[in-house]
């Protein structure tokens, strides 16, 4: 039995499944029904989570807004310094490396140290303790995962953790406002840190304690903690009825346990007129903020 025989055998066995025309509608109906059943089964857990979230938001609101000068929070004893500005490539496993070429550029798992992004502009220098991961680095986006990160689906075999966005500690540049289920660009909205911050804080679907001015790594802007407003009920089809708020490129909020609720947004103005958004998942603030305070952007 040679390779061809094995291949023939496999295709013959596979052909036992008749090639019938595929109608997606039954699947979509079954899929959404199953998700609905899952949602009902998990209603109690979600209700508990909402109580916790509401309590957490209350605490956040009650605390004074934080101003973070760019030169504060720097490690007093910086660990070993490393740079990514070498040959622009790495053997690390990037977020979607299994998709084949083109090769992704990222650091992958990080030892304790100071690093400089390889693609993100403006170049970002940051300091992390051991255990962080850099799975994504492009001109427009940069991502860091906190140690022991989980995407909330609790299935280590699930490949989704490698393929999907998840707001841990992400940076996007030149973000624009988005609206509606189609994520259409809100052309009327401005793109300065102040204009975007105002848009977010005035959004009827957003609860926020209000923005506060910040300076991060040499860039000035605003920071605000956001969550889905309790009165907001609008959703989109794929969200299975969960309250959903599209906001900015790479940022949207979904109410419900196990879903994504980016809670801290930091919008910064670039000298060239663009902007940088730093988004941090609410569960990661304690780990992420020291890293954010270490940020330094290479500015002209």
């Amino acid at each position: 039995m040679n390779d061809t025989d094995v291949r023939d055998l496999l295709f013959r066995v596979a052909d036992e499944v008749p090639a019938a025309p595929v109608d997606p509608e039954p699947l979509l109906r079954r899929g959404f029904r199953r998700m609905a059943r899952t949602a009902v089964a998990g209603a109690l857990g979600i209700a508990c989570a909402v109580v916790v979230v509401v309590g957490g938001v209350g605490l956040i609101r009650s605390s004074a807004p934080t101003t973070i000068p760019g030169d504060e929070g720097q490690p007093t004893e910086p660990p070993e310094t490393m740079t990514g500005e070498t040959n622009g490539t790495t053997n690390a496993t990037c977020a979607d490396s299994q998709d084949g070429p083109p090769p992704r550029v990222c650091f992958g798992p990080l030892d304790e140290g100071t690093y400089t992004s390889q693609r993100f502009e403006p170049a970002l220098t940051f300091t992390v303790p051991a255990g962080w991961n850099n799975p994504w680095d492009t001109r427009g986006s940069f991502e860091l995962w906190t140690p022991g990160w989980s995407d909330g689906w609790k299935d280590p075999d699930d490949p989704g953790i490698y393929l999907f966005d998840h707001p841990e500690l992400t940076l996007h540049r030149d973000v624009r406002a988005r609206e509606g289920c189609s994520d259409a660009v809100d052309a009327a909205a401005g793109t300065s840190a102040l204009e975007l911050t105002t848009l977010v804080s005035d959004h009827p679907g957003i609860a926020t304690g209000g923005p506060s001015p910040v300076e991060i790594g040499g860039l000035a802007g605003y920071q605000l903690d956001v969550s889905v407003a309790k009165t907001w009920q609008k959703s989109c089809p794929e969200m299975d009825g969960r309250p959903f708020v599209p906001l900015l490129d790479g940022v949207f909020l979904v109410e419900g346990a196990g879903w994504y609720a980016t809670s801290r947004l930091i919008l910064l103005d670039l000298p060239d007129g663009g902007n940088v958004l730093i988004a941090i998942d609410e569960d990661q603030l304690d780990d992420a903020m020291p890293v954010v305070r270490s940020f330094s952007f290479a500015l002209g």
């Binding site: 899929g31 199953r34 979607d96 998709d99 699930d158 989704g160 393929l163 999907f164 994520d183 794929e238």
Partner: peptide, 15 residues
């Protein structure tokens, strides 16, 4: 079904 709730999060449609 796992994919349904995650479409919005997909980095690359070709993935």
């Amino acid at each position: 079904v796992r994919f349904v709730g995650r479409l919005r999060f997909l980095r690359d449609p070709d993935a």
